[in-house]
Design a binder for these strands. Structure first.
Lengths: 129, 129
DNA sequence: CCGTATCCGTCAAGATACTG
DNA sequence: CAGTATCTTGACGGATACGG
């Protein structure tokens, strides 16, 4: 079993090590769409591809497919294909996915609850470039 | 006062609206480096530019500057310049930054604690492309 | 018809060298 | 020390075409 994180804080893992797999995991979670997708699946239960895309204005089909596949590879999401007419594919959180939706949900909630404070401090904090 | 989130869950904001400023805020937080930078400043207190860069293997000066400036614009981090020789610039969390380090820390901790489970389920979940 | 794969333009990220 | 300027590369994102 690989232990590439000799300087870990918890057991052996440390996100502050560039080569630690948990850093790659954090990158996957701290992605523009992952938090939204996981929160969505946590709220609605199993969803079809199109339903996810509709609920996420701004995401393209390609980016969505890519992100869903990475989440699937990380065992956070299952992808179930129903051989029906019309065809149907459903995405659903695994236990691991449900588990991480807690921290991610907290982050989303914080963003929603504190935008006003930030805008009060700096009217145009959203950088042009 | 702008209220661009008519379909919000909490008060008036909703990260699932493409045009809501809180979505931009989530994008800033759910960034590859933001979580690491904020956690670092939360642990160490005020830090100089080079110290941050050294503690974050893999980040380039350009990316680091960019991220720090955006965090500063969002009032999560302060940037203090000391007119000394050699020059010194220190970055420190604001109250808002300290506040968000909670949710972000939970996410980092989850990643560190659960990589082993993911690797047990799928040996090579880290996609080639 | 629903979802995936391919092509391609744009833009952000990385490397390097240099300045206040 | 703390960045900035410039270039190159590769990822992102959209449109289109394809498979089931």
């Amino acid at each position: 079993m690989a232990r590439p994180c000799p300087n870990g804080r918890h057991d052996h893992h440390d996100v502050y090590s560039a080569t630690c797999p948990c850093r790659a995991l954090l990158d996957l979670l701290a992605n523009k769409w992952s938090a939204l997708i996981i929160g969505l699946l946590d709220d609605h239960g199993p969803m079809r591809f199109t339903a996810v895309q509709t609920a996420l204005p701004g995401v393209g089909a390609k980016m969505l497919t890519q992100t869903l596949r990475r989440l699937e590879a990380a065992s956070l999401v299952t992808r179930t294909i129903y051989a029906e007419v019309p065809p149907r594919v459903e995405y659903e959180l695994t236990d691991l996915g449900v588990d991480v939706s807690g921290p991610l949900g907290a982050l989303r909630a914080w963003a929603e609850d504190n935008v006003d404070r930030i805008e009060a401090l700096d009217g145009n904090w959203l950088q042009p470039t």
